[in-house]
């Protein structure tokens, strides 16, 4: 729980520095991202990549937690996560 609180404080600090308007108002934030398109992009990921990104970004599970669940090394999970992020950005049409 302490980690979660620290994580939230840290994210707020980053947002204050680099874009407080992004999440402070979800109404102004979300239209920038086509959620339907993101759904399709996530569905196009391989099973392992999809699970890794969902566990990572929703539950904020650590690399060790995700690695433990998948029976993989943390380094392997990092590679999968990075590959998935690149694929999602490309699928979403974001300049790489």
């Amino acid at each position: 729980m302490l980690d979660l609180r620290r994580g939230a404080q840290r994210k707020q600090r980053i947002l204050d520095q680099f874009g407080a308007d992004l999440i402070a108002s979800s109404a102004s934030f979300m239209p920038q991202l086509d959620q339907d398109r993101l759904t399709r992009c996530v569905q196009h990921l391989k099973e392992r990549e999809r699970t890794v990104v969902m566990l990572t970004y929703y539950d904020e599970q650590t690399g060790a937690d995700v690695a433990g669940f998948l029976g993989l090394s943390e380094a392997n999970v990092r590679v999968i996560r990075h590959r998935a992020i690149h694929q999602l950005r490309e699928c979403m049409g974001v300049a790489l």
Binding site: F29, L33, L88
Partner: peptide, 11 residues
């Protein structure tokens, strides 16, 4: 950040 938050919402 937008992508990460979009994924979180999806989950």
């Amino acid at each position: 950040i937008a992508l990460a938050e979009g994924i979180r919402r999806l989950a």
